[in-house]
């Protein structure tokens, strides 16, 4: 049923909880797989390069950020791979495009992430993703 999951994360606590649920879901059956997706939106590139010096350093920091997520999946013995998308106009658009391009049984995403505006009720990214992703979406609160 839910064998091939796309897990979109941004490094926030919400996305960590989403990762837990994704692992639970994937553990329900054998040979399931999780694809870990992280999007570096355009403006994130600018602030990351400013903060970490150059693109290589920024990439390294992102890999470090992914480590706890990868460990969580590994511990459960679930197969996984990671995808980092660059240069998009927005995180939501990239997630939607990527999700609709591949054959995923479900997308798992945190209800809101690191974005500070528009987080009153529902993150803007999760909101757009809910609306436009064709696969079932598991939004974790």
């Amino acid at each position: 049923m839910f064998k091939h999951l796309l897990l979109a994360i941004d490094g926030s606590d919400h996305s960590m909880r989403a990762a837990e649920k994704a692992v639970n879901l994937a553990s329900l059956q054998d040979n399931s797989k999780i694809e870990l997706l992280y999007v570096v939106a355009g403006n994130k590139s600018k602030s990351d390069v400013l903060q970490y010096g150059d693109s290589d350093a920024a990439s390294l920091k992102r890999k470090e950020m992914l480590v706890p997520f990868v460990e969580k999946i590994e511990q459960a013995g679930v197969e996984y791979d990671t995808t980092i998308l660059h240069g998009s106009s927005g995180a939501a658009e990239s997630i939607i495009e990527h999700a609709n391009k591949g054959a995923y049984d479900a997308l798992v995403i945190g209800s809101r992430g690191l974005g500070t505006v528009q987080t009153m009720v529902l993150g803007s990214v999760s909101h757009k993703v809910m609306k436009h992703v064709k696969a079932p979406v598991l939004m974790v609160k």
Partner: peptide, 14 residues
């Protein structure tokens, strides 16, 4: 050079 690094990062190329 700062902009070049940002474009490097956005396109994931060197």
């Amino acid at each position: 050079l700062l902009t070049a690094s940002i474009v490097d990062d956005m396109t994931d190329t060197d």
